[in-house]
Design a protein around this nucleic acid. Structure first.
Lengths: 153, 153
DNA sequence: TGCCCAATGCGACCGAGTCGCATTTGGGAT
DNA sequence: ATCCCAAATGCGACTCGGTCGCATTGGGCA
């Protein structure tokens, strides 16, 4: 796999910000990890395996490596999973604070938003629940048709 | 495929309630559809393809037939999809009124509940949204560890 | 009863994700 | 700077959920 014409430049190609994040999370820094992370940090909306694969195809990266690193980044809390009701799992940078998404069912565009009221609802549920007394995660996603796609019809 | 020892009994095996539902939705009544629907109506929690497959394996039903009919039932609004954060999609009878689920991450048990506050939150989001002015669906699922599983640890 | 189209069986195919094993490489120790 | 080993990657086979096209079967209506 070709990484750089000049062996001496490999290290500086890693990217400072990515290096920082990886070191911080106690994750070994490699060329491919910094590339994946750079892509993730640039992405303005949740992305899937395929997005990464296409973005990095010129590096010759193997499918398995992407899956392994997405999973690693999730465990290291660098990324967070986002369920977009697609076949594939989506991811986004975990530092973006808890929020939710609306997904356009036609073009797939995404709008993010805070939903301050949700935590209260979760609290309330817990009080009334017979079988659960702790909730570790919740997901709340909305689906519709965005204004652009609506006009096109 | 063996459906019944006695050809004359095929029709009465269909089941009255299921026949009703299918006819009502404008869906052609067949032996396998009534079986799938009967299973769905009996099920006390959301079920997957595999659940149906196991329940009906003695009929010799083909995988594709189950997938096709689950999809058909969804389009006909007889079933509704439930996202359980599993690999496979889950389904439940659509007449059960809008509600949500908590899923135990260990044993997979499910508790259902109403979440009256959610519609208000959706409304509020719409008002503030630049890109959407109508939401057709939303999902809200919670994940935790149920009391039984918690004790076992 | 017979006919026609829809439902089913069948099997190949697809894409997401995983795994074991051989090879390469990052980074700490010298 | 070099060496070395554990960890990362490549590779390819495999699993599993789901889809598709085509041949056969069976529902339901005339």
């Amino acid at each position: 796999m070709e990484k750089s014409k000049n062996k001496k430049n490999v290290r500086v190609n890693y990217g400072l910000a990515q290096k920082q994040v990886l070191a911080n999370a106690g994750v070994k820094i490699t060329f491919l990890r910094s590339k994946i992370l750079a892509f993730a940090m640039d992405s303005k909306k949740p992305f899937s395996f395929e997005d990464v694969f296409l973005a990095l195809r010129d590096t010759g990266i193997h499918r398995a490596t992407i899956f392994r690193n997405l999973s690693l980044f999730k465990d290291a809390q660098i990324l967070r999973e986002v369920d977009m009701r697609q076949d594939a799992m989506f991811y986004e940078i975990a530092t973006k604070g808890h929020h939710h998404h609306v997904v356009c069912k036609i073009c797939g565009c995404v709008e993010s938003f805070d939903m301050c009221g949700l935590d209260n609802l979760v609290e309330e549920f817990i009080k009334n629940s017979k079988e659960f007394d702790k909730i570790s995660e919740h997901s709340f996603e909305m689906f519709g048709v965005c204004k652009k796609c609506y006009k096109k019809k």
